[in-house]
Design a binder for these strands. Structure first.
Length: 552
RNA sequence: GCGCCAGUAGCUCAGUUGGAUAGAGCAACAGCCUUCUAAGCUGUGGGUCGGGGGUUCGAUUCCCUCCUGGCGCGCCA
């Protein structure tokens, strides 16, 4: 039971004693300004109305009824409009260091998810081109969200959905075919809406070469569309795999849209929707009554030509998620796809098979723009000017790319400044955090002490009373709460923000107070603090999928 | 026209789900290298929280309205 828990319990008891609602749950927070105390509560203000008393009066009554010594509280101030500010015994605060060092790699983990299954789908790019920076943001987000959920006790499955069926794929095939024809002097043009990137020509060349080297494929001008399409999709999938590998992201499942046609799931879903009375024919197409489930208007699910629109397989796909036991699913997508949210959910509700209305959950992210030498790098798949994830990783490194993608909340637009990411200086936030970690490691290296076997047994942590020490320890002790909050909100950027702040406090402490060469009891206690800071920063970086170097 | 997202210091952005005098980094200015990494640290200045209403003890946060920007509104995905 932490000090905050004990204060909370004491407050609840005192509130009941003075006639508050027995179900009251006091909220304890860190004060905005650390000079105001270690913990604060606005309980007296929230009780003012029901108890019909002035907040300050209530605060006084509460304070009189609390057993403060039991909660480790040295002093309670009543301040401002009615805040109660608690000051803890510094030795008690310092004891957090012992917990952190003891828990080591598990510090920050919780079991809130109770081992339940959750599916996290991300990237899910069409195999029609390399992964660009937008996919990179999504890969970083999805992976970090997955890890956050693992840290809070969920059993996570990372999933990549390939849209390897449909009109865009035919578009791709036609583009490659035209490019093949052009190679042998033909004048065939890439069709309207086709793809023009350099990679199209590369695929065409590769296809030609294979066709000539081995007889396994019919190359050249006579190549049929099926062979070209299959070849192009396979090529691009393996290219995307290399992109993801460069970024250090891996998946538990790669799910092919085409398989939903192969095993009849698409047909099955369409039939079930019709059987449920949720469809109607109009203008030769089959419509789904999505407007009955919050959409602006009904949507076509089967086109006049007999093929399905993208969202029907999407519905079928999410049915499989539910059936595979994932009663919680999170989709990470670009905000340009936000219109699918209502549609997919509507389709799932229309089936009436007990899927919850807010299934799946969506994390939408805004666009990424890349700045280089002060200019925006235009990203256009069709035109071919292009910044791929791999380009970016090769240029600035995986850790910087990940941190940059994760340090902003997903629903704000992100400017990726390549020049800043390349700087190995304080301007670059990822170096700032990693440097703090390396410094903590450096103390142990110089002191020739083994970090991993270091124990706090018998160390008097009560000597860690310097203001910088107390502030750092409080920040470190808040890490589990930061993880819980970030996981609950599906917002990894909170961890990035937390790390920047904690790194700042670690640098500050490091600079002001030496560890080695002090009195023996001080050295031992400060080593413990350095170890605790190193553990917390490393754990936080690990959640974001970023390395924690021991030296830089 | 409708929907979603955003608008906070010169710039890039946080703001713990309604709390105290709104924070950080960069940039600017002033300092700090015989000590565990100066790839760093300390200090100073900088704000009508896009505008206007409302809800209440209290609003950057919730509601309404307007302005600006991005995305979407397809029998493309």
């Amino acid at each position: 039971m932490t000090a905050a828990d004990r204060i909370r319990a004491e407050l609840a008891q005192a509130a009941r004693d003075i006639g508050a609602d027995p179900l009251v749950e006091p909220i304890i927070e860190r004060p905005r300004d650390t000079s105001l105390g270690d913990w604060t509560t606005n309980l007296a203000m929230t009780l003012a109305r029901p108890l019909r008393k002035r907040p300050a009066e209530i605060a006084g009554l509460l304070r009189d009824r609390m057993s403060l010594a039991d909660a480790g509280v040295e002093r309670v101030d009543i301040a401002g409009p009615g805040f109660m500010n608690f000051w803890l015994d510094p030795s008690l605060i310092a004891e957090a260091v012992r917990d952190i060092v003891g828990q080591n790699e598990t510090f920050g983990r919780s079991d809130a998810g109770r081992g339940e299954l959750v599916n996290v789908e991300f990237v899910s790019a069409n195999p029609t081109g390399p992964l660009h920076v937008g996919h990179g943001r999504q890969a970083a987000l999805g992976d970090a969200i997955s890890t956050l959920l693992e840290w809070t006790g969920w059993t996570v499955s990372r999933e990549f959905y390939y849209n390897d069926a449909g009109a865009q794929i035919e578009n791709l095939a036609a583009s490659v075919k035209a490019s093949i024809a052009a190679l042998s002097g033909g004048s065939a043009e890439i069709p309207e809406g086709g793809y023009h990137g350099e990679y199209i020509r590369e695929i065409a060349e590769k296809f030609e070469k294979l066709g000539k080297d081995a007889d396994t494929r019919r190359g050249g001008r006579n190549a049929d569309s099926d062979a070209i399409r299959d070849f192009a999709v396979a090529e691009l999938r393996s290219e995307q795999d290399l992109d993801l590998q460069a970024f250090g992201v891996s998946f538990d499942t790669y799910f092919l849209e085409s398989s939903l046609y192969g095993d009849g799931k698409v047909e099955e879903t369409a039939d079930a929707l019709t059987a449920a009375g949720m469809t109607y024919e109009l203008d030769g197409a089959l419509w789904l009554r999505t407007s009955s489930f919050g959409d602006d208007k009904d949507r076509v699910m089967r086109k006049r030509d007999g093929t399905y629109t993208y969202f029907l397989p999407d519905v079928a796909y999410h049915v499989t998620k539910w059936q595979r036991g994932f009663h919680r699913a999170i989709d990470v997508q670009g905000a340009d796809h936000h219109s699918t949210v209502t549609r997919v959910r509507a389709g799932l509700q229309a089936l009436g098979i007990g899927i919850t209305p807010d299934y799946p959950e969506y994390v939408l992210h805004q666009m990424v723009t890349v700045m280089k030498s002060g200019e925006e790098v235009r990203i256009s798949k069709r035109a071919g000017s292009y910044v791929t994830v791999r380009d970016l990783v090769n240029e600035v490194g995986r850790d910087a790319v990940r941190f940059f993608f994760l340090m902003r909340k997903s629903d704000s637009q992100l400017v990726f400044d390549v020049d800043v990411a390349l700087k190995q200086s304080e301007e670059n936030p990822v170096y700032y955090v990693q440097m703090a970690h390396a410094r903590m490691c450096g103390i142990f290296r110089v002191g020739e002490i083994d970090r991993e076997t270091f124990s706090t047994d018998g160390i008097d942590l009560g000597v860690l009373r310097e203001p910088e020490e107390q502030e750092l320890i409080k920040a470190l002790a808040d890490f589990p709460q930061a993880v819980d909050g970030a996981a609950a909100a599906l917002e990894p950027h909170r961890i990035a923000t937390y790390l920047s702040e904690t790194a700042r406090l670690a640098h500050l402490w490091y600079h002001k107070h030496h560890v080695l060469g002090q009195a023996e009891d001080i050295v031992r206690a400060r080593l413990a603090l350095a170890r605790a800071a190193q553990i917390v920063i490393r754990n936080g970086l690990r959640i974001l999928g970023i390395g924690a170097p021991e030296r830089m």
